Amino acid sequence: MFKHTVTPQFLDIDGMKHANNIAIANWFDQAKTPLYRLFTPDLDLNPEKWKLIIVKAEFDYVGEMFYGEDVEIRSFITRIGNSSFTVGQEAWQNGKLRTKGQTVIVHHDYLSDKTIPIPASIKKLLEEHMEASDKASELSN
């Protein structure tokens, strides 16, 4: 499991005084950076190097998050396929689960515009962070 802490900024807060949905999606994306580095260590977005494409992202907003208090984003792998994997994520504030989500990411060659298999060496690294999504909350509390 990867953990990433964000501090909500004023611009992340909407008129209802809680974290905006777009801010939360951005925090989840920031927290996936260590996973992106498994595929492209220097994070170079050159199509010759970058090999990932997000094909699905969904979020369940369990509770509100507020300005001025850190949010811990927990990221883990829930599924590894031949050419794709699923990342489970949770946002915690003040010891409470506030948002959970999952993202399906495909290993993709932009130059040929084709899906490509995930190399065995990277699959092994992904497996080190594999957890059942319903157990991740229990394990890290």
Rank of each mutant, 00 (worst) to 15 (best):
A19N: 07
P34C: 06
M65F: 02
S112D: 13
L139P: 04
T86F: 06
I118T: 07
M1H: 03
M1P: 02
K96H: 10
I105C: 05
A31N: 01
K135P: 01
Y110E: 07
E127P: 00
W92Y: 13
P119C: 07
A136Q: 06
F2Q: 13
G88E: 12
A19P: 02
N20P: 11
Y67G: 02
H129W: 03
L111V: 15
E69D: 12
A57N: 05
H18G: 12
H18P: 09
N26S: 11
L11I: 05
L35E: 01
A132T: 08
F2H: 11
E72F: 08
K3S: 15
V106K: 00
S133W: 09
Q30T: 09
L126Y: 03
P8F: 08
I53E: 01
I105Q: 00
G88T: 11
P8R: 06
E138L: 14
S133T: 13
A136M: 14
E138I: 14
T5Q: 11
T78M: 03
V55Y: 03
V104L: 07
P41R: 13
Y36P: 01
M130L: 13
F10I: 15
H107W: 12
L126R: 05
W27H: 05
V62C: 08
G15A: 12
I22G: 06
K114D: 04
E138G: 03
I54L: 09
H18C: 14
Q102G: 04
H18V: 09
I13N: 11
N82L: 03
G95N: 08
A23P: 06
